[in-house]
């Protein structure tokens, strides 16, 4: 396959994945205690679009519309956003650190967010619904700021020091979180539930809170896709090829943190997606970030929506934290991919 054919091939892959995402949204919206036919869902969605809306006569009840638009759709869209954010952040972190163990949480975001959320739940008596995500976001960014300043040597940010200080800060913050949980009394259940991560009770407010950051962050990361490719050659060669390595590291750290913190703030700590989706995509489409990042975003979104759909329906009316589902179904699939392609990917 020559180079130009490859570009064409990329466009094709992305088109397929966008179609898959659309189908996922529609089909996932039909799942739930109240059965709603996919065609109805499609019509409902179309009725909200400009131009085509006049062609569609409503053939559904008000309650059906409420279920789809106020309950299921925000949850699905949030799933897409969170999945995409984790996929992109994980890809960028692995590329930046050249480390297969890297995931969006590796430099302390999850620990910061967990502490923020726990503090909010334990200390604030009358919780407004925005307090938990807000505290999670602030503490996540705070943790990154701390890690960054510990790891910084002059104006440089040595990768290994960054990883290690990330681990140190994570352990430290986790200890405080554990202590808070220990003394939290009857609030423990809520905290554990939040920490496991999930998309329940998602509203459009959550979507609007996360959307701008995730959109801006992923776009900026994508703009630096070619730089990330060159970074895979290692820092020195990358610099010789005109990459401002230190600046790139700072940009990547800022925006991966931003999108990860936004995702965690609205959904808790959902594991696995940010680690495995980038690996799986690298096996399937190769290491070039110009295709890898969009694929990780789209597949991350699709994957999380399906995992969440399963989580809320598999033993309905009880919901399972989606993190459990992502691991139970994602891990075997990833192992299958690893075995199928025995070549080393890192």
């Amino acid at each position: 396959m020559n180079y130009l054919e490859k570009i064409l091939h990329w466009k094709l892959i992305i088109t397929y994945l966008i179609v898959a995402l659309g189908l996922t949204i529609v089909i996932a919206a039909t799942f739930g205690p109240a059965h709603i036919h996919p065609l109805i869902v499609l019509k409902m969605l179309a009725s909200r679009l400009p131009l085509v809306n006049s062609l569609i006569a409503p053939s559904w009840s008000v309650s059906e519309e409420t279920i789809v638009f106020q309950i299921r759709l925000p949850r699905i869209i949030l799933g897409v956003l969170v999945g995409a954010a984790l996929g992109v952040a994980g890809t960028a972190m692995q590329g930046l650190f050249k480390n297969p163990m890297a995931d969006p949480y590796i430099i302390g975001i999850s620990a910061g967010a967990a502490l923020g959320a726990t503090l909010a739940m334990v200390t604030i008596a009358s919780l407004s619904m925005y307090m938990v995500p807000l505290m999670a976001f602030i503490f996540a960014m705070g943790a990154i700021f701390l890690v960054y300043n510990i790891a910084r040597v002059g104006s440089k940010l040595p990768t290994s020091t960054l990883l290690l200080s990330g681990i140190a800060v994570t352990l430290f913050l986790s200890a405080i979180t554990s202590f808070m949980m220990y003394i939290s009394g009857e609030k423990l259940h809520g905290i554990v539930f939040w920490l496991m991560g999930g998309l329940w009770a998602s509203s459009w407010d959550d979507v609007w809170m996360a959307l701008p950051w995730i959109l801006i962050g992923t776009t900026i990361i994508y703009i630096f896709a070619r730089d990330l490719n060159v970074m895979l050659l290692d820092e020195e060669p990358a610099q010789h090829l005109g990459i401002d390595v230190e600046r790139l590291k700072k940009i990547m750290m800022t925006f991966t943190s931003l999108i990860t913190a936004s995702a965690v703030a609205v959904s808790g700590i959902i594991g696995f997606v940010g680690l495995i989706i980038p690996h799986a995509m690298r096996i399937l489409v190769g290491p070039d970030h110009r295709i890898l990042l969009p694929c990780s975003a789209l597949v991350g979104g699709v994957f999380l929506v399906w995992a969440d759909t399963l989580a809320r329906t598999i033993i309905a009316p009880t919901e399972i934290p989606v993190g459990i589902i992502t691991s139970i179904f994602g891990a075997p699939f990833f192992i299958y991919l690893l075995r199928k392609r025995k070549k080393s990917i890192f």
């Binding site: 895979l232 290692d234 020195e236 060669p237 010789h240 290491p287 070039d288 070549k343 990917i345 890192f346």
Partner: peptide
């Protein structure tokens, strides 16, 4: 200015 290093470790399948 271009540099050819002593050795290049490239583990990714470019």
């Amino acid at each position: 200015l271009a540099v050819v290093p002593q050795e290049s470790v490239i583990t990714f399948a470019f």
